[in-house]
Design a binder for these strands. Structure first.
Length: 112
DNA sequence: GCAATGACTGGAG
DNA sequence: CCTCCAGCCATTG
């Protein structure tokens, strides 16, 4: 087994483990990976997803403000919001309502 | 290999 | 809660 994977691959692993109806932040994922300062890399990794065969629920990943920063990278600017609403997450003005309640740390659902 | 880029973050106003 | 500035770091050209 490989202990260390590519940063992007690690992001995909965590994001794919996000429970439905919950959201997390880029910083939280980066911190879990050990590179807290690389929150931007998490976003960059997810952006590449649109050009990758991998199906990751990237719509559950938002920035620290709970804003759907990456909605523009989706097939349609509203696709991300629609998906979140389908999962029971309410979106208001491109931001997650009760974000702090829906927010879950990767370490919390990844567990051990 | 160097330079530019970015779905970010924290601090300050 | 919102806006602006500067730092970070892996990927890409």
């Amino acid at each position: 087994m490989k202990k260390h994977k590519d940063f992007f691959q690690a992001v995909y692993e965590i994001v794919s483990c996000i429970p439905e109806g919950r959201v997390t932040t880029y910083g939280a994922i980066a911190e879990t990976l050990g590179t807290k300062a690389s929150a931007r890399l998490v976003g960059t990794a997810l952006k590449q997803l649109k050009n990758s065969p991998t199906k990751i629920p990237a719509h559950r990943v938002v920035n620290r403000n709970g804003v759907l920063t990456g909605k523009m990278s989706f097939p349609t600017p509203t696709f991300m919001q629609e998906l979140l609403e389908t999962e029971g997450i309410e979106i208001k003005n491109d931001k997650v309502v009760r974000f702090q309640e829906l927010f879950i740390h990767p370490k919390d659902f990844l567990k051990k």
